[in-house]
Design a protein around this nucleic acid. Structure first.
Lengths: 345, 345
DNA sequence: ATGAAAGCGCTAACAA
DNA sequence: TTGTTAGCGCTTTCAT
């Protein structure tokens, strides 16, 4: 059954319905709607018809025509982590200002999911992608090279991969925290880290070790726990570390630190008098607990903003050959959880 | 300059390039790619060509053809609030399982933004919308009636508006908390509420008043503060309430409660011995602080999940006339922040 | 200033 | 089984 032009699929008005109602051609409708020249009365009739029909231009048709969707995709491991929330906010704000919508993907850090997202750039659903993988495999690198559209990576890529990226300096960040703990008198600094096989996990561990060496402290493996990022894990890890009697617990993110703080409170240990606690990310969580948490700001918001800006630049000049890499400098934010130890501690 | 079929816009392969390479028609390509019948060797040649070219179907073209984008939109006030994060997670998970992507909008609770989102349903960018307004104006209702596609509202709509919705029962929720505080011996129960002109604000206030009456306590306006939702606001409000010497502070969400707890800690007041604290939403924050927070679970995850399911149902049966309304029952989660008062308190 | 028509990439009805 | 063609809604030449 052939469908007549006057009865479109969903009853939604199209330029055809407007043209019929206004008694002009669809080309004129298009011109008027796009503010190009037209005779006064043509303009009026078209605008009236459009208003009366409640016309809204079909964005899909427009996209097909001009090859862009005005959508950006952000893929991150877990929207439950405040760090990624901060990134989403920053990206969303830049995107919105530039007239782009934001598509969200939670990958749960599953490699296949991340690769699928990368490949899906080819389906033209969005004009560009910001992806934040916590592991970077050879498959990632291959997929990045083969990407069918602009990509910005939030994370640490090998230098030879020709892709824009924004990285945190978590080596320096971890080091900052350890130095601070040392300077406020701590000597047995435990470390609750995330998974050892992730980029952040490796880097934070490296920073921790290096800073200990700087301070003339010996690295003691029994003061280090690897777990996953999460409040419960932090509590369990801290619990397990307590019999090593640390005087400080440095955690690879704020969620772990909050968990650690809870474990200490539960044992009636005072923070910071008995044990200091420091986290990383300086997320909203750092100020949620008691005492407020010393934390290393790794610039999540900054990184999100910068990634979005890079992506927009790339969309403006697709063939600019040189990939940009920015590194957000870490910043130590000292709060009450790391004051001086009690004299007798 | 006319563009030949063989050199498409972005160098991206299309069914035309595949057809040429495989020496068949585009229809055959389409059939093979969609798993319809074809001769063995046709299938092979098409699949080989597609693989060699790294073909990915253009989702925009497909959408234009069949009138659906397989995208859902979620519009909420603020992705920084854990409640909405919980909803995003739940919605994302349902959407993903059904093969839909998720488009995110942060409206900052700005009415014009929310109306724009509602209107933008007409541009066919997404197949349906979940919107979570905290104020519901006549303009909202009008826009909802005029919506060009399926909408589910998370929030309390007047009954006569023919739109699917999922609501929280924050009246009952607030009442639950107040009763619990009363039963654990509190008699001067202060209330830190959100903005008075929002639906949640009004309802929580109503629940608070009603519960006080139930318990035979008099409503004392000087024990009530209206502010906005946020940690800092909670701290300031609690600070301001302290000279009224409450024995409990009930807060309209967890962020406020965390702020209140901080203010109490800063004054060296013990929780719960001196003052009990309770929040609402039972978000991730409730277990982030110390002591862990008693909170009323208003089913954010549940509401998000349900809203997504309703939307998918509606997409399956667009003309089903009866709007569905679900109410998530509130659930009190008791934690350490509301133990019994100290005997002498 | 306006209209006819091509074409973006795809699917599906129809013909062969 | 396969190819030709129309058409989704829009923008944009190219004529008029």
């Amino acid at each position: 059954m052939p469908r007549t032009a006057a009865s479109p699929q969903r009853g939604q008005p199209t330029i055809v319905s407007i043209a019929e109602r206004a008694g002009v051609s669809i080309a004129s409708v298009s011109r008027v709607l796009n503010g190009l020249g037209a005779r006064r009365d043509t303009v009026e009739r078209v605008e009236r018809a459009a208003a009366e029909l409640g016309y809204v231009p079909n964005a899909v048709a427009r996209s097909l025509k001009d090859g862009r969707t005005r959508q950006l995709t952000f893929a991150m491991p877990d929207i439950g982590n405040p760090v990624y929330v901060a990134m989403v906010r920053a990206i969303q704000s830049v995107a919105k200002a530039a007239g782009y919508r934001l598509l969200l993907h939670s990958t749960d850090a599953v490699v296949d999911d991340e690769l699928a997202v990368l490949r899906s750039l080819g389906d033209r659903t969005s004009d560009g992608l910001i992806i934040c993988p916590i592991r970077i495999t050879d498959a990632h690198i291959e997929a990045l090279r083969a990407a069918a559209g602009p990509v910005v990576v939030i994370g640490s890529l090998p230098d030879e991969v020709p892709v824009d990226s924004v990285r945190a300096d978590s080596v320096a960040g971890a080091s900052l925290a350890v130095h601070h703990l040392y300077e406020t008198g701590r000597r047995r600094i435990a470390f609750v880290n995330g998974p050892a096989d992730t980029v952040p996990g490796r880097n934070r561990h490296e920073g921790y070790r290096a800073a200990l060496a700087d301070c003339g402290l010996t690295y003691d493996p029994s003061l280090v726990v690897h777990t996953d990022f999460g409040i419960e894990s932090g509590a369990e890890a801290a619990e397990a570390l307590l019999h090593r009697s640390p005087d400080a617990v440095f955690c690879a993110n704020d969620q772990l630190a909050l968990g650690a703080a809870r474990a200490l409170h539960a044992r009636a240990l005072r923070i910071p008098e008995d044990v200091a606690v420091a986290g990383m990310d300086d997320s909203a969580l750092a100020q949620a607990g008691w005492p407020p948490l010393t934390s290393v700001d790794l610039g999540s918001t900054e990184r999100g903003r910068r990634a979005a800006e890079l992506l927009l630049e790339r969309l403006g000049a697709p063939d600019s050959p040189t990939p940009h890499t920015t590194t957000a400098p870490p910043r130590l934010v000292v709060r009450a959880s790391t004051g001086r130890a009690a004299p007798d501690a």
